[in-house]
Amino acid sequence: MFDLIKGLRTTAKYLFTKPVTISYPEVKRPVRERFRGKHELKRYADGKERCIGCSLCAAACPADAIYVEPAENNPQNPVGYGERYAAKYEINMIRCIYCGYCEDACPTNAIVLEHQYELSFYDRKAAVFTKEILLQPVDKGWGEPPPILQNLNRPPNPPAQMEL
């Protein structure tokens, strides 16, 4: 009998401590900095897309969740730097295991796993996030394109020909 009371004493002690629970969804628990949540396709500061449609994220993905369909940039009105951009960029959020390898594989830091974790859908089709959903707003871009990409857009400089 005494054992029970001993246990109850502990229980009673905790009655007066502050509860550690958070009443989600009214209160949202902030995630840690390294948290891997919903993906975001980033832009450069000038609003151009970082993604060059190289499909390396799809190659790195263990779950085969990413589908990229590249297309040729229109030089007059390019979507990003270089000749290629992702015409279609889809992530199947049900397949995704949030391992973050796509982030590691991306040569232009275009895809980043951000802190959004509320991912629920009413049907399976809705779980396929298209490029429109993933893409960051135009004004939220950051950073300058690396020189290798900037160079692609400079005018051709073929070496001068020797007149023979």
């Binding site: 000749e83 020189p147 400079r154 051709p156 073929p158 070496p159």
Partner: peptide
Amino acid sequence: DYDDKVHFEKP
């Protein structure tokens, strides 16, 4: 130096 590369019209 990357900037010194020849740059052609392409493709």
